[in-house]
Design a protein around this nucleic acid. Structure first.
Lengths: 337, 337
DNA sequence: AGTGGTTTCTACAACGTTGTAAGCACCTGT
DNA sequence: ACAGGTGCTTACAACGTTGTAGAAACCACT
């Protein structure tokens, strides 16, 4: 049912290699030979066996993208951009869910279906620089926060600056009791620490004292965690007039919880998020957020990986920063002019 | 840098095949031989080359899931469940985005990276039964609406019944001017047609006349389309007291648009969706919707595919229906008792 | 010790492809 | 007509793995 080069060759009356040459677009094939071969290919509906080709060539044409969870909108959007960018290099993208568990992340980094992928774009949550260093081997590009002195290429946005800017925006609206939601003490919380740093920097610049009762941890960054965190804040008697959430899903949970508690956004409490996911443009109210250039992140990551697989095989680790901007919407609108 | 069976064999002083046997857990290997081989494997950090194994065995251990778009929450959630279910069979899932374009869907059905995948779970939008029949070849399970007399296994939910039930719920709330948003006339719109059929059936059962000014098309089923559709409905002077959206993202757009127009949900207009995506549990108001058992859909699809790859290779196409239920939330609450 | 049956291991040949090197056929210019 | 290209095609050997068939080693009985 499934044909091989040999079958095509027999039908066209040429050698196996000539068929291979036609399939691979080799220059020096006489026009009439090529035509005969192509006719045979079409007639038999021949498709090359990629396992065999990969075995021979040592390349698979597949790269993997490993993210914590696919149904976190930020990663889903990112995944789409990566798939699109990879298509330009004729790569197929194998998408892996690590669940943020170090064991899964390690498995991804050490090669998923070993030898099945040429390279990896990994968005690590749990792995540290040391873990990664031990794994090397597979060409790899990391997304998200810098793993200091990591052995691999890296694409990030400037988390500290972004967090500082959006906190400054809240301050510019006259808010003084600004809560931060999403802090994490674990080693996994690299983004959390950077965003917290930006938050405190903005407060310091504005001469506002840091009050750690306004900083709420969140075990994960889902809607439910955001809702729980802000409920906890309010029931313990702290009265923020603004909330900076370390990502958008947290913020959507916060909007929901504030609504349930009868507080108005932005009048009573302004809310800002981070990621600029699609939902935030349609929530009620729409969500002010940091908008990383996800398309750029994806493209840079793919380019870096392409480099690693090609000429820059042994270049020292590079680090690229993708731009971001603030998307000011209803939950914390632009200041009146 | 990368080792082969041969390297391990030399180090352990055995034949290549013995190492292969150890790797594959073959029974009859003497304990001390096994120990020596395992030591060598560990020392060299040996990993089998899957391309070679696949070539030899004719199986790759990879299945593909092809969906229209990854950042549509419904598909992202589904993808997660499929990945989880596939893990039970030791399968890796390659996720493909078709964009709902028939060309891409055909490419997926004809084998993506040909011979790279053992089977395919496809959520077709654009392909018709005839298209698919022409492609066969690859073991395949279809998701979503039935492609009539299609050649492949199929997992679906009862769209007509579900749409009828939720429309009946709106009627039970005393609503009489119920709009339907998301109709599509194109061949791609199989779900749209089924859901519309359920809607009209419910109206008929309740003795409510069908008014086609209340049925709004939507080119795609994104938030923006829902918002645009309901805005259009209202500006043309039709005044619905309820809206049934053919999926949840449409409904979220509708909630947003109604909010902008100063209409209260559910007091002025009740809103219902379809899919039960995570967002709908945190929107303001929370969203009443049809909740398909996505986990079940995913598991059934994977089981069917497993059957096709195993004993049921030549079984006639099967069709399984996954259960659904109504999730009644604020946007169209349970009737007062 | 010889028989028969197991267990343990090995050599060899595939799987389908492509790189290499070499061969054949055809030109062109003398 | 012939040397020397160049263009086109081919045979062969890999790539790393596993199935097959069979050899060698072991065991328990007579």
């Amino acid at each position: 049912m499934r044909h091989r080069l040999k079958d095509v060759a027999e039908r066209a009356g040429v050698s196996v290699k000539t068929v291979s040459n036609v399939v691979n677009g080799y220059q020096h094939v006489r026009a009439d030979t090529r035509a005969r071969v192509e006719e045979a290919i079409a007639a038999l509906n021949y498709r090359p066996n990629l396992s065999a080709r990969n075995l021979r060539k040592g390349r698979t044409g597949v790269i993997a993208l490993a993210v914590p969870e696919l149904d976190i909108p930020y990663f889903a959007e990112l995944a789409r951009h990566v798939v699109t960018a990879a298509a330009d290099h004729d790569w197929t993208v194998l998408i892996d869910q690590t669940g943020g568990r170090s064991e899964q992340e390690r498995k991804a980094a050490s090669g998923i279906g070993d030898h099945m992928i040429d390279g990896l774009i990994l968005s690590p949550l749990a792995l540290t620089a040391d873990d990664l260093a031990a794994l090397a081997g597979l060409p790899m590009v990391l997304l998200g926060e810098r793993v200091d002195h990591g052995p691999a290429d890296h694409v990030m946005i400037d988390n500290v600056a972004a967090a500082r800017e959006i906190t400054a925006h809240l301050i510019g609206l006259g808010r003084r009791r600004i809560a931060a939601i999403g802090s994490q003490r674990t080693p996994e919380g690299a983004s959390a620490r950077l965003r917290l740093a930006g938050y405190t920097a903005a407060l310091a610049e504005a001469g506002i004292g840091y009050d750690d009762r306004l900083v709420a941890p969140a075990p994960a960054w889902h809607r439910a965690d955001g809702a729980a965190a802000v409920r906890h804040l309010l029931t313990t008697g702290v009265r923020p007039d603004a909330v900076f959430c370390f990502n958008d899903t947290l913020a959507l949970g916060v909007l929901r919880a504030l609504h349930e508690m009868g507080l108005r956004v932005p009048e009573d409490v302004a809310v800002a998020g981070f990621d600029d996911i699609e939902d935030g443009r349609f929530s009620i109210p729409t969500l002010t957020t940091v908008a990383p250039d996800k398309e750029r992140v994806a493209r840079l990551a793919v380019e870096l990986l392409a480099g690693r697989l090609g000429p820059d095989r042994d270049a020292p680790p590079r680090e690229l920063v993708a731009p971001h901007h603030l998307a000011l919407r209803e939950s914390a609108p632009p200041p009146p002019t």
